[in-house]
């Protein structure tokens, strides 16, 4: 009997509770949370007994990030992961606000693999677009003066010439 309790306790000890900025609680395995370098550091110095607040990340974002971390802590075959990553990105990039928050949060939590994945997907949205199309898509004001634009064209004008 005593051994069973110890085992259960050991199982329990491997779980950690993360709390989002809007007080949503997520109970995940320690190895899943470790995917974030920042959370790993916190767990190393403060232990996993008490819940860890992730104050700058909202519940829906944290949920999505933990979904990624969980999948990536399983050590599955590369092809399986690539397919999963693609589907994950396809879903996330539909809502740009969410997608940008996801990037900010993974940057804040130091999950470099996820930052890389999102940056590549973001870059994909910029390829083959004109500056005006990019400004429209991301709601950016053109704050360049005529002189600055001319100066940029002397440096980067080659990018607009046909191959």
């Amino acid at each position: 009997m005593a051994t069973i309790i110890t085992k259960e306790q050991q199982e329990k000890e491997k779980m950690v509770t993360l709390v989002s900025s809007d007080s949503e609680k997520f109970v995940v395995e320690q190895k899943v949370a470790e995917k974030s370098h920042v959370i790993k550091m916190v767990m190393n110095c403060c232990g996993i007994e008490s819940p860890i607040p992730v104050r700058r990340v909202k519940g829906d974002i944290l949920k999505s990030i933990l979904e990624y971390c969980e999948k990536h802590s399983k050590g599955e075959a590369q092809e399986v992961m690539e397919k999963w990553d693609k589907e994950y990105m396809d879903k996330a990039e539909k809502d740009l606000v969410f997608f940008h928050d996801l990037m900010l949060a993974s940057h804040f939590l130091h999950i470099q693999e996820l930052v890389d994945l999102i940056a590549v997907t973001f870059a994909g949205m910029l390829k083959m677009k004109s500056p005006e199309e990019i400004r429209q898509k991301f709601n950016i004001n053109n704050d360049l003066t005529k002189e600055q634009e001319e100066h940029i064209m002397t440096t980067f004008g080659w990018a607009f010439q046909p191959i």
């Binding site: 910029l126 677009k129 004001n141 360049l144 940029i152 980067f156 990018a159």
Partner: peptide
């Protein structure tokens, strides 16, 4: 700006040149 740099670092040369014309 650092995240923007992460994104732009993944572009090809031509797209990078075009991206330079978006804003300051």
């Amino acid at each position: 700006a650092d995240l923007l740099a992460e994104i732009l670092s993944r572009l090809d040369g031509r797209s990078l040149g075009v991206a330079a014309c978006v804003c300051r």
